[in-house]
Amino acid sequence: MSTEFNIVSEIYNNTLVMRTDGYINNVAGEKIIAEFSKNFSGSMNKVVMDLGKSKVVNSIGISYLIDIIEKLNESNGKLVFTSLDPTIEKTFNIMGIFQFAQKADSVEAALK
């Protein structure tokens, strides 16, 4: 398993789409926050986070994702997770993440 973590962002119709690749730990969490802060604008009401290439997420990394959910809640925006590995989806369910964020099968589905 590679320890390299990468994140790329695109903006589609005023929606920020971030795609991660690799293990989401504390260092990756900080990179996600930095990428979000760099690209998110207050006029956006949706952020899509595609985790299809991240098969392992630890609880410290997820705490950074909760930070993004909080920031979006404050601006009436929503976070949509896509392409979730079944274990990550179960992890998010245990934590109650989907009470405050959504999920979709793909980025395309999330953008509809």
Binding site: S59, I60, I62, S63, Y64, I66, D67, I69, E70, N73, K90, T91, I94, M95, G96, I97, Q99, F100
Partner: peptide, 24 residues
Amino acid sequence: IPEIEKKLSSANKRGWGLKLMKSM
């Protein structure tokens, strides 16, 4: 025991490890 509602408004969003280990 962490609760998502409380974590969202807290500066400390960590502390989920034991809950995940118990659940899985």
